[in-house]
Structures are given as C-alpha cells and as structure tokens.
Design a protein around this nucleic acid. Structure first.
Length: 152
DNA sequence: GCCAACGTTGGC
DNA sequence: GCCAACGTTGGC
C-alpha cells in the first residue's frame, strides 16, 4: 500500500464535508493535471491512505486522514457540460481524466499547518514543500507519513 | 488582492 | 518543435 497527500480547498470541499457524506465517502473529482491524473489512474489503490490537505485558505495544512476505497476510474464530471470540471476534449470511450473514491478515516488531533511542516528538516523532501509545487495529488513516503503522525 | 511559479495553448 | 501569451494555483 502507498501513502498520499490530497489537496482540497476547504471552501469547496473540506474534511468536515467529507465526514458528513453518506458512508463518509465521496469521489475525488476535478483533477485536471496529467501528472496527478497518472497517479489517480495507475497508482492509487484500495486501502491506500492519504492526508487530507486544506489549501488556499487561512491556515493551509493537514486536516485529516482518508482511505482510498475505490481505485482510479473515469471522472464523469469531465463529460458533463454543466460541471465546472467539464472538458470538451474528453470522451466516454477514451476517458482523459480519472478519480478515486475516498472515505473519511479521522481528523488529526490537531491541524498541522504548512508553516509547521516546513520547520521539520525530516520533511525537506516532502513534495508539498518544494517551491512552486502545484500538484494536487502527491506521494508521501512511509517515513514522512510516520513523521507527521509522530508530531501530531 | 498580489504575484511567483508553473502548465497549457496555439501560432509559426 | 519552439516559445510567447495566457490561465491557474496557492501562499502570503
């Protein structure tokens, strides 16, 4: 199994929103970046765990943990002209974009802010902290995962 | 709201 | 295939 970090803007979809969903499960739609798409489609598997990261908000940081409960499958919002994620170049017989289903596991005991993550030398290689990184899905090593849970 | 960084688009 | 222009991300 692998570990991940998944970004979401809490004003759009927060860990609290996920916790309120039926079965506390929701599909992770709207990823429109090829590198992130490849991870959704090829690498994320049922049983993987991911940090739920709140971005573009007052205090960006890790808010909780989710589990991947369905591996990559076509993101149907790309085919819906009414969706903000509509992509006219996508087609149902040749899907361009993918998503996974995630299930709420728990909130962290405390919110771990981006500023705090930056202060840990052990996380120097954490992709989230690399300058200019804009990926909304990124891999987390077991060591990084454990480190973050340790400082929780 | 600013702006640096980056990805994508499209003319050539 | 280059690269300038443009749009988006996301921290601050």
């Amino acid at each position: 199994m692998r570990y991940w970090l998944m970004k979401s803007e809490p004003e759009t979809f927060s860990i609290d929103d996920l916790a309120l969903k039926p079965k506390q499960t929701e599909h992770w739609d709207g990823v429109r970046n090829y590198q992130a798409r490849n991870m959704l489609r090829d690498q994320m598997k049922e049983g993987d765990l991911a940090f739920f990261y709140h971005s573009n908000c007052k205090e960006p940081g890790i808010a909780g943990i989710v589990e991947i409960v369905r591996a990559g499958y076509p993101d149907h919002t790309a085919l819906n002209p009414d969706s903000p994620y509509y992509d006219p170049k996508s087609a149902s017989d040749q899907p361009r974009w993918y998503m996974v289903d995630v299930k709420f596991r728990r909130r962290l005991n405390r919110h771990i802010s981006l500023a705090e993550l930056k202060s840990h030398p052990a996380l120097n290689d954490f992709p989230l902290l690399n300058r200019g990184n804009r990926l909304s899905i990124m891999p987390v090593t077991k060591a990084q995962w454990n480190h973050i849970l340790h400082i929780e």
